[in-house]
């Protein structure tokens, strides 16, 4: 009882108005400062002719290019195409990877059957499969969905499997002691205790999915952010390439951060708080 209330009191003392704005946000403020300084340096390097904007672009040029792409509407089409590819590929990977990972973690024999395939494919850079995918799917959207799926499914599968496999034996004993059937053991112990690993898999899969989008579209496509960057790059439109990079980076950071926040909420399950 006391420990809980004490914690709250301490938190209040630390986060209270006595601490300055700087003390509370020191890390974020330092980061903001560094980024601003870098942007200014970049802008002025171009302004004073130290570097050639044809190669380096500049913050103001990137903003201008971005605004133009928004105005003529081309960016929305690219975003939609890439977004749909991502959604389908990643969604499919979750639908396939999570159940397979759970089954492989749970059933030794099932794992023995599939392990060689999973190991081989997980070890291969999936980009190496791109030519094969082009042969099978051509250059339309299904090829991109396929490469995103293949990039994403293995980190999700392998992490989920690890989660199921590393269940604390004490929990299994408790469940058995209460007379849990196999199904109940699975639903009440195996599933919840592998959630943290599952989330890690989803987060790692996200990074792989973004690689899949970009590379897949560069390989052969008719629309999408990766395709836009590829064509812009081929014609030395560095500003447009930069817009693409920034979009990819922002989406990646936002999604990863979102999953990281969910992960943190479940982190306490993984940590051993006993003793």
């Amino acid at each position: 009882m006391t420990s809980v209330t004490q914690d709250i009191v301490e938190d209040d003392a630390q986060g209270g108005p006595s601490r300055s704005l700087w003390a509370r946000h020191e890390n974020s403020l330092l980061g903001l400062f560094a980024v601003t300084a870098f942007m200014l340096f970049w802008e002025f390097s171009v302004l004073y002719g130290w570097v050639n904007p044809l190669f380096t672009s500049s913050p103001s040029r990137i903003i201008k290019a971005g605004a133009a792409m928004v105005r003529d509407g081309s960016i929305w089409n690219d975003l939609a195409v890439s977004g749909i590819e991502f959604g389908l590929g990643y969604g499919l990977a979750v639908i396939v990877g999570v159940p397979l990972g759970i089954l492989m973690g749970w059933y030794r024999r099932f794992n023995a059957l599939l392990e060689p395939f999973v190991n081989a494919l997980y070890a291969t850079p999936r980009i190496a499969l791109m030519p094969l995918i082009i042969i099978w799917f051509g250059v339309d959207m299904s090829a991109k969905v396929a490469i995103i799926f293949l990039s994403t499914v293995f980190p999700i599968l392998v992490n989920t499997m690890t989660g199921v496999r590393t269940i604390d034996r004490d929990f299994i004993k408790v469940a058995r002691s209460f007379g849990a059937s196999d199904g109940q053991l699975f639903a009440t112990v195996a599933l919840p205790s592998s959630v943290p690993n599952l989330l890690t898999g989803l987060r790692l899969g996200l990074g792989h999915a973004l690689i899949g989008i970009v590379v897949g579209e560069m390989y052969g496509a008719s629309a999408g952010i990766g395709y836009m960057m590829q064509t812009a790059g081929a014609t030395f439109q560095t500003d447009r390439v930069m817009v693409g990079i920034i979009i990819i980076a922002a989406v990646g950071m936002a999604l990863t951060q979102g999953l990281k926040m969910i992960e943190n909420r479940f982190e306490m399950w993984r940590v051993d708080h006993r003793g």
Binding site: D170, F171, K173, V174, A175, S177, F178, G179, A180, Q184, T188, V189, P192, S193, V195, F266, M268, W269, H273, R274, G275
Partner: peptide, 27 residues
């Protein structure tokens, strides 16, 4: 019969109340 284990072995993903009701939920 019911066992109280040495390690407290409570399920960290269940609230106190739902830990207590675990056996009943299974039944």
């Amino acid at each position: 019969r019911a066992m109280v284990f040495q390690q407290d072995s409570l399920f960290p993903w269940r609230t106190v109340l739902r830990n207590i009701s675990y056996g009943l939920e299974l039944q």
